[in-house]
Amino acid sequence: MSFIFGGKQQNPNAVDPAKIEMAVAELDMITDVFNRLVSSCYSKCIQPNPMSHRYVEGDLLKGEGVCIDRCSAKFFEVNKLVGERMQTMGGAAQAGGSFGH
């Protein structure tokens, strides 16, 4: 009788591909942000001079740890700021795909 009561749209056990797609996109974005954060703060805090860096020890120095915490905090602020700015600029989405396909 499910074809009378409820129906497909309300079926609590049906998989909604659009919801899955959104969740996957969100997950991809979180991973992307995390990877960029790791690599940016690595450049800022661990190897400010990559040419001279020869890794003489494998532990984080105290100063490096403090730098990572501050660097992460600043990265989150920049993340927020860029989001706000893109909204202000408006039509930002088009900037990335405005060559007419």
Binding site: D32, V33, R36, S39, K44, R70, A73, K74, V78, V82
Partner: peptide
């Protein structure tokens, strides 16, 4: 769009964040 957004965060963070004596921009 998401790649543009996260790419901009990385690009502008790397270019602009220079002072790590405090947590705030």
């Amino acid at each position: 769009f998401m790649k543009l957004y996260t790419g901009l965060v990385e690009r502008c963070f790397n270019a602009c964040a220079q002072d790590f004596t405090s947590k705030a921009l």
